[in-house]
Computed example of a mutant assay.
Amino acid sequence: MQKYNWNYPTTMWVGENRINDVASACKNLNIKKPLLVTDNGLAQSVIVKNTLSILKEGGIIAALYSNVVGNPTGTNVNEGADYYKKNNCDGVIAFGGGSGLDVGKAVAFMSGQNLPIWDFEDVGDNWTKANSDKIAPIIAVPTTAGTGSETGRASVILNEETGVKNIIFHPKFLPSIVILDPILTVGLPAKMTAATGMDALAHNLEAYCAPGYHPMADGIALEGMRLIDKWLLEAVSNGSNIEARMNMLTAASMGSTAFQKGLGAIHSLSHPVNALNNIHHGLSNAIFMPYVLTFNKDVIENKIIKICDYLELKDRSFDGFVNWVLDLRKKLDMPHKLSEVIDEKDFDIDRLSKMALADPSTGGNPKKLTEDDMRIMYQNSMTGELFK
């Protein structure tokens, strides 16, 4: 029998206004001077200003690094790590969406390393090169319900020199304490709520369809999809619904927990267009989802029918599930074709197909993939034609 490694999340403080406990989280981890890492937009927001005030009232003065961009770069991480050391920080509060969380985790990691960040790409046992004792403690505070980076052991960082998004991995990337507070997501615009929600769906869906033996991840992924089915549309149409926001935050964390089992071609196709065309990751995942599903049909049909049963869909068939995805995207006012967000002249299919095949997510796809397969899926996503 093949051997597997199963890992599960960390301490999670969940509920309305749990951000009020952020100073307690620092004290719990013996963090006296944290660096709060976020993007510039959030740095100007009420929720970040309130968080800094809560920390100050608790006797903790935090430094702030907010140069994070939407598709975070190695420069963001290096700048953040330098700022961390310059301010004599002793821990990181990673605050925001996937970009803020990924950079925050990577800053905590790189603050104690001498090798370049790219030496720790998630290939083989690269992570063992790190000095584990020098990795700073991390508190993660997500403000979107999508990436689930708060329960992940990796960060996705763009290498500006190569134009490739690299997955940087280490077990200690996993935050020590996660604060899931739905109040922090209430102000998220409807379009971003929709895109991040589809990202969470892609994580749960691809994890469930990935080959390998991990029934616990399968169970989490199924329930994550049920929560998304029940609450995503409500969170988008009524952003002040705290129950909907809480359930979507939970589903996002569940997706990241489940995809330790693997991802697949939805992510393989997404990462290159995120890097080269600056398309939002959740949006690209939503676009690619039905093309990858129909491409993989012959090996995932039985699994998809089980999802239909669990979601209690009216049409409990493979086509019924694909139609559910298409209908959900339509209700969320999301594009069906990649050509709706990328101009043909900016679409380098040869380069994209090579990058997609080399993406670490490719290995988790239910069907073995070739560069031609990637090209065909890209072409279909541009024309809007699903596989028959």
Rank of each mutant, 00 (worst) to 15 (best):
S53H: 13
S53P: 05
I54L: 15
L55H: 09
K56D: 13
E57S: 13
A62I: 04
A63L: 01
L64A: 04
L64G: 08
Y65Q: 02
S66T: 01
N67C: 10
V69Q: 07
V69R: 12
V69L: 03
G70W: 09
G70N: 07
G70Q: 09
N71E: 04
P72G: 06
P72N: 03
P72Q: 02
P72V: 07
T73Y: 08
G74K: 11
G74E: 12
T75G: 06
N76A: 06
N76I: 07
V77A: 04
V77H: 03
N78C: 10
G80Y: 05
A81S: 13
A81N: 04
D82R: 15
D82Y: 10
Y83K: 11
Y83C: 06
K85V: 09
K85P: 07
K85D: 13
N87I: 05
N87A: 05
N87L: 06
N88F: 11
G91D: 05
G91F: 08
G91R: 04
V92S: 05
I93N: 02
I93Y: 05
I93H: 05
I93M: 02
I93L: 02
A94Y: 03
F95A: 03
F95Y: 15
G96N: 04
G96R: 06
G97F: 10
G97H: 10
S99Y: 10
G100F: 05
G100I: 01
A106I: 01
V107Q: 00
A108E: 02
A108D: 02
A108K: 00
F109E: 02
M110S: 08
S111T: 04
S111Y: 02
S111Q: 02
G112K: 07
Q113H: 08
N114W: 09
N114A: 14
L115R: 14
W118T: 15
W118M: 14
D119G: 08
D119L: 06
E121I: 15
E121P: 08
E121V: 15
D122H: 13
V123A: 10
G124Y: 00
G124Q: 01
D125C: 06
W127P: 05
W127N: 11
W127G: 08
T128C: 07
T128K: 15
T128E: 13
T128A: 09
K129E: 03
S132R: 11
S132I: 08
D133S: 14
I135H: 08
I135T: 07
A136S: 14
I138K: 14
A140T: 12
P142S: 12
T143E: 05
A145K: 10
T147M: 11
G148I: 01
G148P: 12
G148R: 01
E150G: 13
E150F: 13
E150L: 13
E150A: 12
A154F: 15
S155D: 04
S155V: 08
L158N: 13
N159H: 05
E161F: 10
T162L: 01
V164I: 15
K165D: 00
N166A: 14
N166L: 14
N166Q: 13
I167W: 02
I168W: 06
F169T: 06
F169D: 06
K172L: 11
